[in-house]
Structure formats: C-alpha cells, structure tokens
C-alpha cells in the first residue's frame, strides 16, 4: 500500500500513539510500556513467573504490528544494513556492538523503571515526576552520545 511508504505527518501518528496510552488504560487500567513486555518474557523463561501476562501479550502485539506493517507496505525483511553502524564500523563488529548497546538498554531501563514508551510517553502523560526526570536524563544522554559519536567519526 502506497500510503504506508511515506511517513504521515507527525500530527497524525503522534495523537494516534497517544490514543494507545489512553486505550490501554481505558481497557485494562495499565500503563503502556514495551520494556515490561521484554521483562515478562525473561521472567517467564527463567521460571520467575509462570505466565507472560498482559505485558507479554502487549509485546507480542507490538511485534505483530511491525509484521502487519511490513507485509502491507511490502517491506518485510528489506534493507541489508543497519544505520550508521553499518556505514561506519567493520561489518563483523556491528552485531557485538548492538548486543552491548542492548545490555545497556535492558539493564538501564529496568533500573529506571521504563524506556522511551514507559517513562517518556506514558509516564510523562500520567504526570509522574520520576518519569520526567528519567525522560530528561535519557534524552540528554542520547543526544550527547549521538553528537559525540558523530564528532568522532
């Protein structure tokens, strides 16, 4: 579908994403966050819990949403490289660097109680002071590290 090839205006996608936060609260009274879904999978796989729960179901939904989009837009599995890493780093290093970055994401976001969606989107929308602090901290760090990487390349 051609409409999916170009990204729509931000004022279309943004409010719809806001509706997802409202929808999850209105349906099941839970705070939207993707990190919790990954955590639910890890907790289930390591026997810490015996079910995936709503967080695991939400995560599977996000994966499914990506799949549906890719099938409708005809982009499934498209694109060989991965952003600046593939352009700037030896190919054999891209995987290990992504694993390392993933560890920081998983450990850091668990420590902070949320990621871009849990703290940045829903935590701030719900007016949680901790989420505003988390949001400011990860935005400042991510922008600073990105600019530093750009400067070094």
């Amino acid at each position: 579908m051609d409409i999916l090839v170009e990204r729509p205006p931000w004022f279309v996608v943004g409010p719809l994403i806001g509706l997802c936060v409202i929808g999850l609260l209105a349906l099941v009274n839970r705070r939207l966050g993707v990190l919790g879904g990954f955590s639910a999978v890890v907790e289930r796989a390591t026997g810490r819990t015996d079910e995936l729960g709503w967080r695991g179901a939400f995560l599977l939904g996000v994966v499914g949403g990506g799949l549906i989009f890719a099938l409708l837009s005809g982009s499934f599995g498209a694109g060989g490289g991965y952003g600046w890493l593939s352009r700037s780093v030896d190919g054999a290093l891209v995987g290990p660097i992504l694993v390392g970055a993933g560890v920081l994401i998983g450990f850091g976001a668990k420590t902070a109680g949320g990621c871009t969606s849990g703290n940045g989107l829903s935590g701030t929308a719900l007016g949680s002071p901790a989420s505003f602090v988390a949001f400011a901290s990860f935005m400042a760090t991510a922008v600073g590290v990105s600019l530093a990487i750009e400067g070094l390349l």
Partner: peptide, 30 residues
C-alpha cells in the same frame, strides 16, 4: 535510579538507534 538507569539506557539508545518499542516492531518487520 531514575537518573542512573536512564543515563545507561540513553547511551545504549544512541549507539543502537533503537529502544524497546522499535526493537519489538523491527523483529516483526524482519
């Protein structure tokens, strides 16, 4: 912890240009 954890998370986000939501959707996109 909200600051310390988010600084770690932000660094990982900047290096990988991905965070949990996009990672999950990328998995679906193949």
């Amino acid at each position: 912890r909200h600051v310390v954890g988010s600084v770690m998370f932000g660094a990982g986000w900047a290096v990988s240009d991905a965070c949990p939501g996009p990672i999950a959707a990328q998995l679906g996109q193949g």
